[in-house]
Every structure is written in structure tokens, then in C-alpha cells.
Simulated assay, not measured.
Amino acid sequence: MSLAEEGFPTGAVVVVGSLNVDLVTSVARHPSPGETVLGSDLVRLRGGKGANQALAARRAGAGVTMVGRVGDDGDGEAYRSALAEAGVDVTFLQTTPGVPTGTALIVVDPTGENAIVVAAGANARLEADDVRSARAALEGADVVLVQLEIGDEAVRAVAEVAATTGTRLVLNASPVRDLPRSLLAQADPVVVNEHEAQAFGLSGADDGVCVTLGGRGATWGGTTVPAPRVAAVDTTGAGDAFAGALASALAAGAGREDALRAAVAAGAEATTWSGAQPV
């Protein structure tokens, strides 16, 4: 049950990030380097950390605006329609001529663990000016949520606009790459998994850092919430569900523990279906 369903007020979230088509296959085990293994039939699903998080925030009750880029292909048009049907504002979702919509290649083993390779496509064309053009949306938002499947200039622009509009910045620092310490310090919080936290030298004991712990829940500034037991099918998108639900809860004014509780529940639920987004 979301905080909105429990009677908490709802807030406004802007998500700046990626939109991908996920190509998913299941294997008996992940291959070693140079090894070929046989997979199941290929399944096409919608994904991308930005869109996953936008839909998760919307499911959690927030009003959501998506800022990003898709290609001028059928996948891009289908994605735009799907987001709009889910209640996500796509006013600032741009179409990039002559470039395909982003694609992720995902391999899932019997335990639900996945390995992912992303071909950025239109996501790599998201520019700082695209973010600045959405300034009015950020000014009206309680939280802006951004991840790292888009370019450095766009990420920096999110931080700059958020700083001038006073919008709370939540940064999902994934996938790992070099970031200015000032950006990490501005985020409230930085959301990372255990491996990412180690790479950045961050700790869930830090006040501005939220670390997801997989099946053990999550911790933020010394507050830890355990995860409920679920029958996991596929962990793809669980971290995105967590981040989107966390942003929604914070936008609604929830405190740290309530926000963590809502996010952990959303992340656990997301492991019970195949793919990053429920169908």
C-alpha cells in the first residue's frame, strides 16, 4: 500500500532520465567471459531508469513529469503513449530525429539476478537546454529525481536548476561514474546500492546517503528498514521502484522512516514480476 493510499498528501515529482526498450532473456546461469549460453525466447519490455522511476513515483501517488528523449521510431512513440496513459506528464519528453530509442540487453538467471548492457540511443542526446526548458516544471515540483543513464551536462543542469528553484534533489548515482563531490553533497539523499556506495566511498550512516541492501532492505542516515519477504522472480528495476517511491514519499512530506518504508515495500514488490515495469 502506498503512502497516498494510507492518507498521506501527494506531492509533485520531476524525473529527468532515460527511457529504454528492454530486450530480456532468461538463462540457467550467467556466462563466463568468452562463453556462450542458451537463453529463453527474447521478450521486449519497456525500461530505462528514468521511465521506471517516473512510473514508480506515479504508482506511489505523486504527480509526475518526465524529462528525457526518445527516438523517432515506433518504440519512442509507443513509450510516449504508455507514459501518458499512466498519468505521467510528457510535455518535456523530446523526440530525437534519426536516432533510435535507448535499448537495454538484460539476462536473468533462475534466482532473479540480472546482467544488463545499455545502448543509450536518444538518451545520450539529452542536453542541458532540455533540462533548462523544463524549469517551470521543476519550480512547481517538490522533488526532482535524476539518475546517471544520461550525460554529464544534463545531470549538472538538473543540479543547477534545482539549486536556483529550491527543489529537493534526489540523485540515484547509478550506473557508477565520476561525479563532483559538490553534486553528491547537494543531493538529499544520494540513493545507491552497496556496490555503488563502496565505489563512491559513501555510507548509509551518512545523513545524505540512502543505501539499498537488496533483500535486507535499506538504510539512510542510520535509519534502517528491513525488506518484506517476497517470492522474487526478477530483480530488474527493483532499485528504480525504490527510488521512485522514495521520491514520491518525500514529495508528499513523509519523514525519513516512512519514506524508507514505502520505498522498500515498492522495491520488494517490483521483484515479483518479470521486467522493470509491471504489465
Rank of each mutant, 00 (worst) to 15 (best):
T91H: 12
E85C: 14
A84Q: 08
D72S: 15
L83P: 00
G87R: 04
T65K: 08
R58T: 09
T65N: 08
G68D: 11
V64S: 02
L55W: 11
A86R: 14
G68R: 10
G74F: 13
A62K: 05
A78C: 06
A60H: 12
A82S: 15
V64Q: 02
L55A: 15
A56V: 11
G87P: 01
G63D: 12
D89C: 15
E77V: 13
Y79W: 11
V88L: 04
V90L: 09
M66G: 05
G76N: 04
V70C: 05
A54K: 06
G76C: 07
V88T: 09
A78S: 12
V88K: 09
V67E: 07
V90Y: 08
R69S: 12
D75F: 07
G71I: 01
L83I: 12
T91M: 06
A57H: 11
G63W: 07
G71A: 01
A54R: 02
L93T: 02
R59N: 05
G76I: 09
L55C: 13
V70I: 00
G87V: 06
S81P: 03
R80Q: 11
G63Y: 03
V70K: 08
G74I: 11
G68K: 06
L93N: 08
G68M: 00
A56E: 05
D72R: 02
V64F: 03
R59A: 12
G71V: 01
A82V: 13
M66S: 04
D75V: 08
G71M: 03
L83W: 06
M66Y: 05
D89Q: 12
V67D: 04
A57L: 11
V70S: 00
G76T: 12
V88I: 01
E85A: 15
A54P: 02
T91Q: 14
A54F: 01
A86P: 07
D73I: 04
A82W: 15
D75Q: 12
D73R: 01
V64Y: 01
S81D: 01
G74W: 10
L83A: 06
D72E: 09
D73K: 05
E85L: 13
L83G: 05
A56M: 11
E85P: 10
G74S: 11
A56F: 00
L93E: 10
A60L: 07
V88C: 11
F92K: 05
D89H: 10
V64N: 03
G76E: 09
T65I: 08
G87S: 00
V88S: 07
A57S: 13
G61T: 06
A60F: 07
E77S: 15
A84T: 13
E85V: 14
R59P: 02
A78Y: 04
D73A: 02
T65W: 04
A84Y: 01
T91W: 06
A60V: 06
S81A: 14
M66N: 02
R58Y: 04
M66Q: 03
R58M: 10
V90T: 15
S81L: 07
G63P: 03
L83S: 07
R80N: 10
S81Y: 02
E77C: 13
R69W: 03
G68I: 09
T91K: 13
A86Y: 01
A82E: 13
A62Y: 05
G71Y: 10
G68L: 05
A62M: 10
V70M: 00
A82K: 14
E85D: 14
E85Y: 07
A78E: 14
A78F: 02
Y79I: 15
